[in-house]
């Protein structure tokens, strides 16, 4: 049986923890708003890029001209590159582990098929998790800890790295792993194939392209040259979008994790206080009995 002092200490420590988790929740909520607005601000660029690219790709594939390899792929799928984006910090529920789990399953499946897997880790946490199993496969680890908010520059840096590896013939297929932000309580780990580029026109964009009359376009310098410069840019934009979604997801996950932690702490305090009060009362009763029985004995 714990003494009263022990109980008091325990309650005080839970209270202190609750204060921390509460503060973390509020910080996450503020950061989430910022991350969400950043993700929203970046959306028009990605959308327009997709429209332009699908227009271009549709126009090019009609001609018999040679297509860039980024669009068609190398015609092989022996070596796979996985770009796994996670957070730099923990304490955000299952956020990091669910992305890592998806990546791990993907990698295991590819390895079972006898394919070569190469991994680029973006973010410390994913690297920590994947390192245990795939230390041989990890070729690079990108640390974004020094940046408070991810900008396009960092995404472009990762994009350039991927393209450089692709140009050197280091891999055939690239997949991007990140967490899509659905809502504060739901983040969906997603795998997105980035090379060969997925530019299959969607229903909506096709209509937009149709009334533009893409065959009338004048291209300067040439359609191939534009497509060639646009595809790497599109890759960077995709990485950028993934990083922004990840940032929003991370804060959302942290917010809900800290919310439940705060609630748990509250419950624990209630339980401990009850035990404390009972123990205290029992002690008082015991003391009273001692006094009374002492008086009676006289």
């Amino acid at each position: 049986m714990a003494s009263l002092k022990d109980l008091r200490n325990r309650i005080a420590s839970v209270k202190a923890t609750q204060k921390i988790t509460k503060a973390m929740q509020m910080v996450a909520a503020a950061k989430l708003r910022r991350a969400q607005s950043a993700a929203e601000a970046a959306r028009p660029y990605a959308e327009r890029m997709a429209v332009v690219l699908s227009n271009l790709a549709a126009g090019v594939s009609q001609g018999d001209a040679e297509l860039p390899r980024m669009l068609t792929g190398t015609g092989d799928d022996k070596t796979h590159l996985m770009v796994v984006c996670t957070a730099e910090r923990g304490l955000c529920g299952a956020f990091n582990s669910s992305i890592a789990r998806l990546a791990r399953e993907h990698a295991n499946k590819l390895l079972a098929e006898g394919k070569t897997v190469k991994i680029i880790c973006v973010g410390k946490k994913g690297h920590d998790i994947l390192r245990r199993q795939f230390s041989k496969q990890i070729i690079e680890f990108v640390d974004l800890r020094e940046f408070r908010y991810v900008g396009y520059e960092q995404a472009d840096m990762i994009g350039r790295k991927v393209i450089q590896l692709f140009d050197e013939g280091e891999f055939d297929v690239a997949t991007l792993f990140y967490s899509r932000f659905k809502s504060v309580i739901a983040q969906v780990p997603t795998a997105l194939k980035i090379i060969p580029a997925q530019v299959a026109p969607e229903e909506g964009t096709e209509a937009a392209a149709g009334d533009g009359g893409e065959s009338l376009y004048e291209y300067e310098p040439s359609q191939q040259a534009i497509l060639g410069t646009l595809l790497p840019k599109n890759l960077s934009v995709q990485v950028f979008t993934a990083l922004l979604e990840n940032a929003a997801s991370e804060q959302g996950a942290r917010m809900s994790a800290m919310d439940s932690a705060t609630r748990n702490a509250g419950e624990m305090i209630k339980k401990q206080t009850l035990i404390y009060n009972r123990t205290r009362q029992a002690q008082i009763t015991k003391e009273l009995i001692e006094i009374i029985s002492g008086a009676e004995a006289l």
């Binding site: 009338l216 376009y217 004048e218 291209y219 534009i226």
Partner: peptide
Amino acid sequence: PATEGDMTVLAGHAPAMTT
């Protein structure tokens, strides 16, 4: 500032794409 030289776009310009 197009790659092939500066250009000015006015209303009713022919559809074009340029880097």
